[in-house]
């Protein structure tokens, strides 16, 4: 991918190179993650699901995608 048209983001601690202009919604689709039961934090701020389509990934963004798991 052309460096000029790519952005480097961290997703759950892993480096990902994405095309410029990719939205959060597209990123989740790319990763095969359905939005039901998940939450996303972008640079330490929770992004409401309604804002996924309009949220464009920027260089050096840190994304955390979480869901529930077994616990006490």
């Amino acid at each position: 991918m052309d460096k000029m048209t790519a952005v480097n983001v961290k997703v759950n601690g892993y480096d990902k190179i994405l095309p410029q202009g990719v939205t959060l919604e597209a990123l989740l689709e790319l990763l095969g993650i359905k939005t039901q039961g998940i939450a996303v934090e972008l640079n330490h701020k929770v992004v409401p699901k309604s804002a996924f389509p309009a949220t464009i990934m920027r260089d050096k963004d840190a994304v955390e995608i979480i869901r529930m798991t077994g616990g006490g």
Binding site: Y14, Q36, A39, I65, R67, M68, T69, G71
Partner: peptide, 18 residues
């Protein structure tokens, strides 16, 4: 019932307690 909140495993994105 209590549940924990953890990162989605990017290698197994289909896994869910849901």
């Amino acid at each position: 019932v209590t549940v924990a909140i953890r990162r989605v495993n990017l290698d197994k994105t289909g896994e869910s307690l849901l």
